[in-house]
Every structure is written in structure tokens, then in C-alpha cells.
Simulated assay, not measured.
Amino acid sequence: MRDSLGVDVTQLLDEHVALERQYVAVTATPEGCLGGTLPDLETADDELRHSTRVVCRLLREAPGIVTQLQAARATEAGGGEAIVSETMSRFLSALHALQEQAGARLSTTVEEDKEGRETFEEVKARDEKAGQQVKQLQKELRAERASREADVSSRDAVLRKLRATLDTITNTAADEVKAIEAEGKAQEQADHATGAEREAALRAELAGLKGELGSRRKEHRESEEALRKKKARCEGEVEQWIAKYDAEVGERYEELKALKAIYAEETAQLAELEAHFARLAAEREAELEAERRVAEELARQQAQERALHDGAARIQAVFRGKTERRLLEKRKAGKGGKGKKK
């Protein structure tokens, strides 16, 4: 497989798989227990995102690599000899899942894609908020742990100082006892009371120091126990937030499915109503067209009737005019004849 794809491509894919394993290890390990070998979650996430973009650009620029990887996967799935490693097989599975996701993305409508994006943005916002709360709790836990360690170190220093003081006092008391014994038996009776008082005071002081040491040890244990309980409580709260987040995501998913079903039903009803109103509009258009034709025919008939009426009126006017002129001419002719006879 390395010979067919090339050393550079294989090395790039191996590095991407290594970053995926690193991200899984970081997310599966408590933040306080990462140690010096693993980066923090933000760094691991940024490195994995960058590597994913680089691999996608490589596959886009060289489509033949995808064909070779698919052929290799088909050979292994068909029972042939495995020519890809377990790491490469996992990468091919992830690549196939990405292809299916891209296909599903292309098959969705604009409304479904917009609705899915809005839902994803809401879930992403809640996830980021929960992540910020987790980071804040982890930050508080680290601060509390650092404060506890500083307190323990300070108290250990005080304890060492008290032990040194106790050793000094013990050695001083022993030296004083030896000096008193060396002075002689003559001073023994007189100094016995002073020595006894001094020893009692020292013993009392020693008992007090031991009591203080015991009380401070007890305080240390109580403080450590309180910190342990606080840590367990913080971890329980984080688990509750995660469980609450999972429950909310499940509820939103069910709501999304129900809304999609309602949307599909309403879309079907809308299509039926649009078809019904289209039929009604066509029928109304046909009725209006028939009424328009009737109105046009009526207007034509009325126009013809008006034309006939106007023509008859003109003919009558002409006829009356001629009749009047003839009568007028006859009257003029009659008057002229009477004058000549005179």
C-alpha cells in the first residue's frame, strides 16, 4: 500500500490517525492526569482539525488516491489478502462515513438543511456552554489542588521546623541533665527541684508540641478529605451535566423528528389545496371567458342595432328634407304664377 500511494501520502495518513488516537486519549483522560506526554484538549482539537483539512485538500487535489483506497478496501472486504493496516482500515471507514454524510447532505432540501443547521447551531451552543462549564470546574479543581498542595507544603515546613525545635530542646535538656549530674551530689538535692521543674516544663512543652502536631495532622487529614469530597462532588456535577445534555439532545432529536413529520403532512395538505385552488381558478377563468364572449356578442349586437337605428334616422332626415324642399318649391312656384296672371 505504501508503494502504490507513496511515502508522503502514507505518512500524512498515519500522522492523521495518530492525531485521532491522541484526541481520543485526551478526551478519555481526566485533565488533571494528562502528564507531560499529552497536550490539552484545545490543542489536540486544533491539531486534529488542521490535519483533517490537509487530508481533505489532498484527496480533492488527487482523486486517484480515493480510488486506490476504495480498491484496497474492496479487496480486503472480498476476502482477499489485507493490503491495508488496521490504522488505514479505520481511516477508510471514517472516509466512507464522511462520504455517506456528504451524500445525505446533498440529498436534503434547502429548508431541511437550514433547519438542520439551526438545530446543529443550538446543540453546538449548548455543547460549548457545557464545555465551558466543565473547563471552569476543571480550572477551579486545579486551583483548589494547587492551593491544597501549597498549604500542605507550608504545613510540612512548619512540621519540620517543629521537629528540629523538638530535637534541639531534647538535646538541650539532655546536656543540662548531664551538667547537673557533673556538679556533684552536694548540689543534687538543691538542684533536684529545679531540674525536676525544668524537666516538667520541658515535658509539658513537649506534650504541647506533640498535641499541636497531632492537631495539625488532623487538620491536614480533614482538609484532604474535604478536598476529596469536593473533587467527587465536582465530578458528579460534571456527569450530571453530561447526562442532562444527552437527555436534552435526545429530546430535541425526537422533537425534530415530530416536526419533520408534521411538516411533511402539512406539505402534502398544501399541495392538495394548491391543486384544488388551481382547478377552481381554471374553472373561474373559463367562466369569465364565457361571460366575456357573451358580453362581446351583446355589445356587437347593440352596436349593430345602433348603426341600423342611426342609418334609419339619417335616411328619414334626408327624406324629410327632400319632402320639405319640394313643398317649399311648390309653394314658391304657386305664388309666382298668381302674379303673372294679374
Rank of each mutant, 00 (worst) to 15 (best):
D167C: 02
G184K: 02
G184L: 04
V177N: 04
A196P: 01
K185V: 09
R155W: 02
R163L: 10
K185F: 01
D175T: 06
R155P: 00
E176L: 06
R203M: 13
G184P: 00
R160N: 06
R163E: 08
L202K: 02
V177F: 01
L159N: 04
Q187V: 15
R155C: 01
Q187D: 11
D191A: 05
L162V: 10
A174Y: 07
L202P: 00
I169H: 04
L202V: 01
E199Q: 15
R155K: 11
A182I: 09
T194N: 11
A193N: 07
N171Y: 07
A182V: 11
T165E: 07
A190V: 11
T165F: 02
D167L: 10
D191H: 08
T170W: 03
L166Y: 03
T172C: 03
G184Q: 01
I169S: 01
L202F: 10
A200W: 12
G184N: 04
K185Q: 12
D156A: 14
L202R: 03
E176Y: 05
D191I: 03
R160G: 07
T168D: 14
S154R: 15
Q189S: 08
A200Q: 10
R203N: 14
K178N: 13
L162E: 10
G184T: 01
L162M: 14
Q189L: 13
R155N: 10
G195R: 04
K161G: 07
A193H: 14
R203P: 00
A190H: 08
Q189I: 10
A204G: 12
K161L: 13
Q187M: 14
T170H: 06
T170R: 04
E176C: 02
G184E: 03
H192K: 15
I180R: 02
A174F: 09
T194Q: 12
G195D: 03
E188K: 02
T172K: 08
D191Y: 00
T168K: 02
A204E: 11
A186T: 03
D191S: 02
G184C: 01
A200N: 11
Q189V: 07
R163V: 12
A200E: 11
A200L: 15
A204H: 13
I169L: 05
I180T: 09
E188M: 05
E183G: 10
A157M: 10
T172E: 04
G195F: 09
R160W: 04
L162A: 12
K178G: 05
A182C: 04
R163G: 04
R198H: 06
A173Y: 03
R198T: 01
D156Y: 03
A157S: 09
V177R: 11
E181N: 07
V177S: 05
T170L: 07
A164H: 09
